[in-house]
Nucleic acid binder design. Structure first.
Length: 483
DNA sequence: TGGGGTTAT
DNA sequence: ATAACCC
């Protein structure tokens, strides 16, 4: 909790200490439940407080790690703690710790500008994402212990649907504990808490769970981060960023309009990206209020019904999208960018490097990719952002060799990749590439059904991994082999 | 602008 | 296969 404390937070200190006390109280309350405590169905419980049909109002937490890559680097090398630290990829400082931010370093700042602003800046190379990825999944797994419904967003953010957990805690709550219920962390807009409002109660319990999550992240992984608790993903995400490093905020429904109106531009709304913001601007829409009051019919005509309806709801703070459990990754990819690659041999060498790392990753995962994709970026002064790709199925005889140590699986896969390469790039003509990327996807779980069992005749040789298959992934070794 | 990810069309 | 979104 001490890692991220900044001067600007002096005023918050009392509140943070209160939060710590609240947590102790919450934990004491759990541990100290008297033996004769009434069960959920007994008259002493607060079951009556929870409306039956209230399943539409959810409690969602958004957990957002502080300058994640920099934190991982400081854990790897504690001598970096206390110094201004930047994580470098190519000529960019992609993120930096708060020491560096105080000295004017920003995310995605050019290395030259950063060094100019802050000559004492220590830089570490962050192009290899392995340790970040591993720590990222440790965080997700820790959160899954609280509730299995965890959705990843990048490496450093997670959503958790706390609705069920909150319901359970409320059913355990004694009526005399209700009046002592307190919030953990900040309340957005300093709004007053009303213990007669059932949603306030649920969100307070959510804030206590969020505090426990942050405590667990710090105690078990050494990581600090922010959390936002609200009734949907959009609001949880927006409110998590209100008090910034290592603090948490809960949004009560009566302040949701204040929150979304605090955005100075529609582009700041998660779900409205660069392209949509440009198109909105062309329609004269720049503020959240502009979007709220714009004609839905015209918006639908301009952006299509799907995008139009979704973003206009977002502008009112409405977001019904569920927290979708991410499960294991859908794809593994590695990429490298560079100033210039203009020969086939050069490309082949880089592709081999990317593939070698990928094969290690995919081997550790245990599932087998059935599709391989090669992506390139061509040099061009404009249209800077576009990439081209070619993909194809991986031949079954190659798939079978995957994960079987000494067999050479590199050669056939590099051959495939070079065919994809020549399909995109006319190697008889001069070319200039600035990026190569290899992706292994369409991952399928191994078939563990044994001969003679019902499963053997019912399960296809390889089961898909789309959504339903994800669940079975977790079961692959521990449970399936019992059959 | 890096080195990743996801879903929709 | 691309385009949009997210970090």
């Amino acid at each position: 909790e001490q890692l991220g404390v900044e001067p600007e937070e002096e005023a918050d200190r009392d509140e943070e200490e209160d939060a710590a006390q609240d947590m102790e109280r919450a934990e004491a309350g759990e541990a100290g439940g008297s033996p004769d405590a009434p069960g959920p169905e007994e008259p002493g419980g607060l079951t009556w407080l929870v409306p039956e049909g209230s399943s539409s109002s959810r409690v969602i937490v958004h957990v957002d790690l502080d300058c994640f890559y920099a934190q991982v680097e400081m854990i790897s090398n504690p001598e970096l703690k206390g110094k201004p630290l930047g994580v470098q990829q190519k000529y960019l400082v992609v993120t930096c710790n708060y020491e560096a931010r105080k000295l004017g370093v920003k995310k995605l700042m050019n290395v030259r500008d950063a060094k100019e602003k802050c000559p004492q800046l220590v830089l570490v190379n962050g192009e290899d994402l392995t340790r970040y990825r591993e720590m990222s999944y440790k965080v997700t797994e820790l959160l899954e212990e609280f509730s299995p419904v965890v959705e990843r967003l990048g490496f450093d953010e997670n959503f958790v649907d706390l609705t069920e957990m909150v319901e359970k805690r409320l059913q355990q709550l004694q009526s005399d504990e209700l009046s002592a219920l307190t919030v953990s962390g900040h309340v957005y807009n300093n709004q007053c808490i009303n213990l007669h409002d059932i949603m306030h109660i649920r969100l307070l319990v959510g804030s206590q769970i969020a505090a426990e999550m942050r405590e667990a992240m710090y105690n078990q992984l050494g990581l600090t981060g922010c959390a936002g608790v609200a009734s949907n993903k959009l609001l949880a995400k927006l409110v998590s960023g209100v008090f910034k490093p290592n603090q948490q905020t809960v949004l009560l429904p009566q302040s949701s309009q204040v929150l979304i109106q605090s955005l100075s531009h529609v582009k700041e709304m998660p779900g409205i990206g660069y392209k949509t913001a440009k198109r909105l601007e062309a329609l004269g829409i720049s503020s959240v209020h502009d979007l709220q009051t714009f004609s839905p019919k015209i918006l639908e005509k301009e952006l299509g019904i799907s995008v139009a309806q979704r973003i206009q709801k977002l502008s009112f703070g409405e977001d019904t999208s569920p927290v979708t459990p991410s499960g294991p990754p859908q794809s593994f990819s590695e990429e490298d960018s560079f100033k210039k690659c203009s020969s086939e041999v050069e490309a082949k060498n880089k592709i081999e490097e990317l593939l070698a790392s990928l094969l290690n990753r995919v081997c550790q995962d245990g599932r087998k990719p059935h599709t391989i994709r090669l992506t390139i970026r061509r040099y061009s002064s404009e249209n800077h952002w576009s990439r081209e790709s070619r993909q194809c199925p991986i031949p079954s005889h190659v798939i079978q060799k995957l994960g079987t140590g000494n067999c050479d699986v590199m050669t056939p896969m590099v051959d495939i990749l070079m065919k994809l390469f020549r399909n995109m790039v006319n190697v008889k003509m001069p070319f200039h590439l600035t990026l190569l990327s290899v992706c292994l996807c369409n991952l399928k779980v191994l078939n563990t059904a044994k001969k003679g069992t019902i499963d053997y005749y019912l399960t296809p040789l390889l089961s898909t991994t789309s959504r339903s298959g994800k669940r079975s992934f977790k079961m692959k070794d521990s449970h399936m082999e019992d059959f």
